[in-house]
Amino acid sequence: MAACAQQPTNEVGFGGQPPVPPGPVQPKSEQERVPVTEASVDASMLPKGYPTKVWTQDDGAVVVATGQEGGCSKVHAELGEQTADHVKVVFVEETPEPPGICTMDLRYPPVAVRLDAPLEARKVVLEQRDVKVPR
Results as ranks from 00 to 15, higher is better:
Tyr50Gln: 15
Gly100His: 14
Phe14Glu: 08
His76Phe: 06
Met104Asp: 12
Arg135Glu: 15
Arg33Met: 13
Pro27Tyr: 08
Arg122Glu: 05
Asp42Thr: 02
Gly67Thr: 02
Val62Glu: 05
Val113Thr: 05
Asp116Pro: 07
Ala5Leu: 11
His86Trp: 04
Lys28Tyr: 01
Val125Phe: 02
Ala121Thr: 09
Pro109Asp: 02
Ala84Phe: 11
Glu38Gly: 11
His76Leu: 05
Pro19Gln: 14
Asp59Ser: 12
Pro27Arg: 05
Cys72Trp: 06
Glu78Val: 07
Val64Trp: 01
Ala43Phe: 02
Cys72Tyr: 06
Ile101Glu: 06
Arg129Phe: 00
Val133His: 09
Met1Lys: 13
Gln7Cys: 03
Glu127His: 05
Gly100Val: 07
Gly13Leu: 10
Met1Gln: 12
Glu78Pro: 07
Ala117Lys: 13
Glu38Met: 01
Pro96Lys: 07
Glu78Tyr: 03
Ala43Tyr: 00
Glu11Trp: 14
Val62Lys: 07
Val87Thr: 12
Ala5His: 10
His76Ala: 09
Trp55Asn: 02
Ala84Glu: 15
Arg107Pro: 01
Val34Cys: 04
Glu32Asn: 08
Val25Ser: 10
Val36Trp: 01
Ser40Glu: 13
Ala2Arg: 14
Met104Glu: 13
Val34Met: 12
Arg33Lys: 14
Pro35Trp: 04
Glu69Leu: 04
Tyr50Trp: 15
Val125Cys: 04
Glu69Thr: 10
Pro51Asp: 13
Pro96Gly: 06
Asp42Val: 01
Glu127Ser: 10
Glu11Asp: 15
Glu30Lys: 08
Glu97Leu: 06
Val92His: 03
Thr9Gln: 13
Asn10Gly: 15
Ala65Phe: 07
Asn10Thr: 14
Pro22Met: 08
Val89Gly: 05
Val41Pro: 04
Val89Trp: 02
Glu93Lys: 05
Val64Glu: 06
Val36Met: 10
Asp116Val: 00
His86Gln: 15
Val133Ser: 08
Ala112Asn: 06
Val87Ile: 15
Met45Tyr: 10
Val63Ile: 14
Ala2Ile: 12
Glu38Ala: 12
Gly23Trp: 10
Glu32Trp: 03
Gly67Gln: 06
Ala39Thr: 09
Arg129Gly: 01
Asp85Ser: 15
Tyr108Asp: 03
Asp85Asn: 14
Gly15Cys: 11
Arg107Cys: 00
Asp85Glu: 14
Lys132Gly: 07
Pro110Cys: 00
Val113Gly: 02
His76Gln: 09
Gly67Leu: 04
Lys53Thr: 15
Asp42Ile: 00
Asn10Leu: 11
Pro109Cys: 02
Asp42Pro: 03
Glu81Met: 08
Val111Gln: 03
Pro18His: 11
Ala65Ser: 14
Pro47Asp: 08
Ala43Gln: 05
Thr83Phe: 06
Gln57Met: 12
Gln31Glu: 14
Val87Tyr: 04
Lys88Gln: 13
Tyr50Asn: 12
Gly80Leu: 06
Gly70Ile: 03
Lys74Asn: 13
Thr37Gln: 09
Glu97Asn: 11
Arg135Lys: 15
Arg107Trp: 02
